[in-house]
Design a protein around this nucleic acid. Structure first.
Lengths: 347, 347
DNA sequence: GTGAAAGCGCTAACAT
DNA sequence: ATGTTAGCGCTTTCAC
C-alpha cells in the first residue's frame, strides 16, 4: 500500500460541497445570537434551559463542533497537556515511564499526549516543535540527540522541558535519569565477588548516554577488581533482541567464553535469555532494567522504578515556574534484585 | 541572548508584566512588516536571505514562536495527526498496536499522538472531544464503553473514527478486531483433543467485549465437546496479573483442580505463570495474546499480530473519506502457537 | 522582495 | 437571560 495520495486529511468538511459549520450557523439555526450559542455550547451559566436545548439540537443537526484553534486563540489559555516524547513505543521501559507520568499528571488535572520519535532526530524535532507551537504545559523528552543545544529554544519560548533517562549535554536543563554507574557497578562487583573473571558486556547503541555510562562503569568496575578488559567479551550496538541474541551466541561460542554476562538494557537481556535457551550451563546473567517476567524467569536485574522516574519527571516539570530555579539533574537509584541468574558461580 | 525569563505555562497568562511576544513584536524588532516576518519564519520563498536572518534573530531574541492556534485558524487546515486512545499505557498489547499504527501513519505523513483513558469513560470522552475539537485527521479508539452510541457524534462532526480491538455496540462504525471466537475455540479444542476434561477459564473484566467473546467461545467449545461447564473452574474479572495469580492459585488448590487452564489475555497469562512457578506439575496452559517472552518461557499462546491490527486500523481510517462507505468490522485471525505449555497431557 | 488590509471562528467586555 | 462589538495572532488576498 504505497499510494502517495491519501485523502482523509484534506477533507475537513464532512461531505464535499458542504461547508464546515461555524457558530454563526448554529446561532442562526437556533434563532439566537452567536454569543448565546457560544455560552450554551460551553456549558456556561445564564442560559435558559430551553435555549440551551435548541442550540444543542442545532449544533447536532449541523454537525457542528467548537473549533479549539479559535477558542484557544481568543482565550489565550495554554493547553493543559503535557507531551511525552519517547524513542520507541514498543519498549516496556517507556510504558512504565508513561504510566508513572500519566498518573502524576492526572493529580494535577493535566492530560498526557505521547508521541514516538522512533529514535529519529528529525521526527523528534518535529514533535517538539509542534508541542511548543501548541504551547503545551510542558515537554518530557527522552531525546535521541547526542547534543541538546538546540533544545535551549524550547525553554526560551516558554515551554518547560525535562529530559528523561538520557543526561543533558550541551545545555543546562532539568533532567531525571537513572544512576547507571551505581547500578552497573553493583552488578559487576557481584560477579567479581563470586569469582568471575571473564565478564562480558553486551550493550545497545553507544549513542545513548545511559549505554555509555553503563559501559564506563563496567570498565571501571573491572579495573577496580584488577581484571583485564577483554575486547572479545564486549559487544556494543545491539539495538534489538535479535541482534543481542546473536551477539550472546557468539560469545558462548568463543574458545574461552565468559562465565558471566552483563546485559546493558532490557532488550539485550531478552536477547541473552533467548541465546541461553538451549544451553545446559549458561553463564551467570545480570541485566539492566527490571521487567515483569524477570521473576518468573529467575533473571537477576538491576534497575530503577520506571513509574517513579515518570513521577519525578512530572515533579521536575511542575517545579519549573515556581520562581527562580536552577536546572538540575536528578538520578534515581538502580537497585539489584537477585533472582538466580546472577548468582551462578563460574563454571 | 538565552536569558529570557521563562515562566511556566500553568497560568493562562505568563509572568505578569511580561507579554508573550507576537509576530508584530518580531516584525517591529526586525524592522519589517508583519507579513514578511511571517514569510521568513514559515520558510516561505521570496524573502531575502538577509531579511530572513534578521527576522529569525529577532524571534530568537524575543523568545517568539508561531502560535499554532492562530495559524490553524487562519489556514483552516486540519492537523495531520491521528489520535490513538488506549486503556492502559503499560499493556504490551497496546504497545504493539501503537507501533503498527505509527509506522502505517508515517507512510502517509501523519503523526501519531497517543493518550490513555485509563479505562475510564469520562477520561475517554474528554480525550475524544479534544481530538474532535482539534479536528484531528482521525481517531483510533480502544473504547472502554459498553455502548458506543455517543460516539456517533464524532463521525457526524467530520472526524473519522475506527474502533480497535473492541467490537462496536449501538453504533455503525468501522472497527478492527481480533477473531476471538476462532482463537479461543482452537485453544479449547486443543485441550479437548489431548484428553482434558477439567478446563479452567481465567478472564479479565466482563465489561470488555473481547473477554465476553472469549468466554462465550470457551463455553461453546466445552459444550461442543460434550463437557460440562463447571462454575468452579471459571474466574472472571481478574484485571491485574496479581489478581490473576491469586485466582489461578485458588484453582490449583481445589479438590479437583483443572488439568488445563485457558487465560483470556496477556495479563492473566502472566498471573498464571506466576502461580505455576513453584508447582511441580502445573496444568496445561494456553494464553490469549502473544507476548515477547512466550518463546523463552515455553508458553503456548493464541493471538493476533498486534502490529497488523494497528496497520489495519490505519487503513480503515484512511478508507473513510473515499466517498460512500459502509462501516464494517474487520476481524484479524488469531493463530495458535504451540510452545509446550499447552501440549501437556492431563495429570 | 515586500507591505496593507481583511478576516479565519471564537470569546471577553460591556451592553441591554 | 441575551445581544453587540471588538479583537485574539496569524495568513490570505492583492497591491507595490
Amino acid at each position: 500500500m504505497t499510494t502517495t495520495h491519501d485523502d482523509v486529511a484534506r477533507t475537513p468538511a464532512p461531505r464535499a460541497g458542504h461547508r464546515v459549520p461555524t457558530l454563526v450557523d448554529v446561532a442562526e439555526a437556533a434563532g439566537v445570537s452567536i454569543k448565546t450559542a457560544s455560552r450554551a455550547l460551553n456549558g456556561e451559566p445564564n442560559v435558559a434551559d430551553a435555549t440551551r436545548g435548541r442550540v444543542r439540537a442545532a449544533a447536532s443537526t449541523l454537525g457542528f463542533t467548537l473549533n479549539s484553534a479559535a477558542s484557544q486563540l481568543r482565550r489565550g489559555t495554554a493547553v493543559r497537556t503535557v507531551g511525552l516524547v519517547v524513542g520507541d513505543l514498543a519498549n516496556p521501559f517507556y510504558m512504565g515511564l508513561a504510566t508513572g507520568v500519566e498518573h502524576a499528571l492526572r493529580e494535577h488535572g493535566l492530560q498526557l499526549t505521547m508521541a514516538s520519535s522512533d529514535e529519529d532526530a528529525a521526527t523528534e524535532h518535529a514533535i517538539v516543535e509542534d508541542l511548543v507551537h501548541r504551547r503545551a504545559t510542558g515537554i518530557l523528552l527522552v531525546s535521541t540527540l547526542d547534543e541538546h543545544g538546540e533544545l535551549r529554544s524550547v525553554g526560551d519560548r516558554g515551554v518547560p522541558l525535562v529530559l528523561v533517562d538520557r543526561a543533558p549535554s550541551g545545555i543546562e536543563a532539568d533532567a531525571v535519569v537513572i544512576d547507571n554507574v551505581a547500578g552497573t557497578t553493583a552488578a559487576i562487583a557481584g560477579f567479581v565477588a563470586r569469582g568471575h573473571r571473564r565478564i562480558a558486556f553486551v550493550g545497545d547503541l553507544e549513542r545513548l548516554s545511559p549505554q555509555r555510562e553503563r559501559y564506563a562503569a563496567y570498565a571501571a568496575a573491572l579495573a577496580a577488581a584488577g581484571l583485564p578488559l577483554d575486547p572479545a567479551l564486549v559487544v556494543r550496538g545491539s539495538h534489538s533482541a535479535v541482534a543481542a541474541e546473536g551477539a550472546v551466541r557468539d560469545l558462548l561460542a568463543l574458545d574461552e567464553p565468559p562465565t558471566a554476562v552483563f546485559t546493558a538494557n532490557n532488550r539485550v537481556t531478552i536477547g541473552a535469555i533467548g541465546a541461553f535457551r538451549d544451553v545446559a550451563h549458561p553463564p551467570a546473567l545480570v541485566g539492566f532494567d527490571h521487567f515483569e517476567l524477570a521473576d518468573a524467569l529467575g533473571i537477576t536485574t538491576v534497575g530503577a522504578d520506571t513509574a517513579a522516574l515518570g513521577r519525578e519527571a512530572v515533579a521536575a516539570l511542575l517545579r519549573r515556574g515556581d520562581g527562580e530555579h536552577v536546572p538540575a539533574t536528578r538520578a534515581l537509584p538502580a537497585t539489584l534484585v537477585a533472582r538466580g541468574s546472577g548468582e551462578r558461580a563460574p563454571a
